[in-house]
Amino acid sequence: MRERSLLDLDDLTSAEITGILERARRFHDDPPPRNLLRDVCVVNLFFEASTRTFTSFAIAEQRVGADVVALPPGSSSLGKGETIADTAITLAAMGVRVIVTRHPESGFPYRLAESFAGHVINAGDGRHAHPTQALLDLLTLQTEFGKIAGLRVALVGDILHSRVARSNILGLIALGAEVTLVGPHTLLPEAMQRDGVRIARDLDAVLPHIDALMLLRIQRERIAAAVLPSLDDYARNYRLDARRLEALAPGTIVMHPGPYNRGVELTEDVFAFPGWRYAQQVSHGVFVRMAVLDFLVNGAA
């Protein structure tokens, strides 16, 4: 039987998501012994540069006492003609129990999980999914508001190319939040409309009516690709600046998965905003990843 993997949040029931958040909260409040994954070999297989997620996983793996091997990007034989299945079989044969993987192509972790006799954790695949980022965002909301059901959450910016947005949408809907997506048509096609999600074009109209605002990174490449005319034109409608911060209702929090572009999707005014939760998000990332490792390897108990 194939071991359980975390490829996206729809692999988990809402009860399981809540359970992982509770476990992460427990680990945060009361650090567990460093032996939860004793003798469990974890490989970090990253095909894309990553500082934040890579480091967060590495720290989480150490804190649960796993044996950790990190394969830097470009070192894998996949680039030498080895198939995904070959890589999976090879690592399993060495006793690797968990693969944490990031890949520029949507779906790569799914293909890996088909052949790997162990757990696969998706640390970001193409523009598809980034489930541990969504979990740490959910933990941040949960910590702030005590619940997620009924929260009004807006995601702003490059929804189309964002794996963070996709996974967050799944998680937020599963836990009963009201989700609004905001962005221009080229970054947020009408066809992304789905049950439980509202699409808006006018951020200013949305700002006073939300509990949390999730900003997404805007990549400068979008200008060369004729997706955006200029960062300034984007800023006119969507950059979070002092004026827009004032439009937020009291108690609204602002989140960003990082890395953020100062002056692009936000101005430096945001860093002084009392509801800015970026550091908490990053901090929660370690505990959520510890909880995911523990949940997959040791079960739901």
Binding site: S106, G107, G126, R127, H128, P189, A191, M192, R194
Partner: peptide, 10 residues
């Protein structure tokens, strides 16, 4: 390109 491709991130 469709709701399906947006859902899959393809």
């Amino acid at each position: 390109e469709s709701a399906r491709s947006f859902e899959l991130g393809l």
